[in-house]
Simulated scan of single mutants.
Amino acid sequence: MRVLRKITPRRLVDVARAAVLLARARLQTRQESLARSVVSRDPQAPWPPVTTAQSSDIDRVAWAVAVAARYVPWRSDCLVQALAARAWLAAHGIESRLVIGVPHQRGDSFEAHAWLLSHGVTVTGGNITRYAAFPTALPPENWID
Results as ranks from 00 to 15, higher is better:
residue 136 T to Y: 00
residue 15 V to E: 03
residue 113 H to C: 03
residue 66 A to P: 03
residue 52 T to F: 01
residue 13 V to L: 14
residue 16 A to T: 14
residue 9 P to R: 13
residue 80 V to K: 11
residue 5 R to A: 12
residue 61 V to E: 07
residue 97 R to L: 11
residue 9 P to M: 09
residue 113 H to T: 04
residue 91 A to P: 00
residue 26 R to I: 00
residue 18 A to F: 05
residue 117 L to R: 07
residue 117 L to Y: 05
residue 121 V to D: 06
residue 125 G to Y: 03
residue 51 T to E: 01
residue 54 Q to R: 06
residue 111 E to I: 15
residue 143 W to C: 00
residue 78 C to R: 11
residue 28 Q to C: 13
residue 128 I to V: 15
residue 98 L to E: 10
residue 94 I to G: 06
residue 6 K to E: 10
residue 142 N to Y: 12
residue 83 L to F: 04
residue 47 W to S: 03
residue 48 P to L: 08
residue 84 A to S: 09
residue 47 W to N: 00
residue 68 A to H: 04
residue 117 L to I: 08
residue 76 S to I: 06
residue 15 V to G: 04
residue 2 R to I: 14
residue 121 V to I: 11
residue 142 N to D: 12
residue 44 Q to I: 02
residue 128 I to N: 00
residue 59 D to S: 14
residue 46 P to Y: 03
residue 25 A to L: 08
residue 48 P to G: 09
residue 67 V to L: 13
residue 29 T to Q: 10
residue 138 L to K: 10
residue 33 S to W: 07
residue 127 N to Y: 04
residue 128 I to R: 08
residue 46 P to Q: 01
residue 100 I to T: 09
residue 92 H to A: 15
residue 100 I to L: 15
residue 108 D to C: 06
residue 5 R to F: 10
residue 127 N to T: 07
residue 145 D to Q: 11
residue 58 I to D: 00
residue 17 R to W: 08
residue 1 M to Q: 10
residue 98 L to S: 09
residue 127 N to I: 10
residue 123 V to H: 07
residue 30 R to M: 13
residue 49 P to V: 02
residue 30 R to A: 14
residue 138 L to P: 02
residue 57 D to H: 08
residue 89 L to R: 11
residue 90 A to T: 14
residue 85 A to L: 11
residue 102 V to I: 15
residue 1 M to L: 12
residue 50 V to A: 13
residue 76 S to K: 07
residue 27 L to V: 13
residue 68 A to T: 01
residue 104 H to Y: 14
residue 112 A to N: 01
residue 96 S to Y: 10
residue 99 V to L: 10
residue 139 P to F: 03
residue 93 G to Y: 13
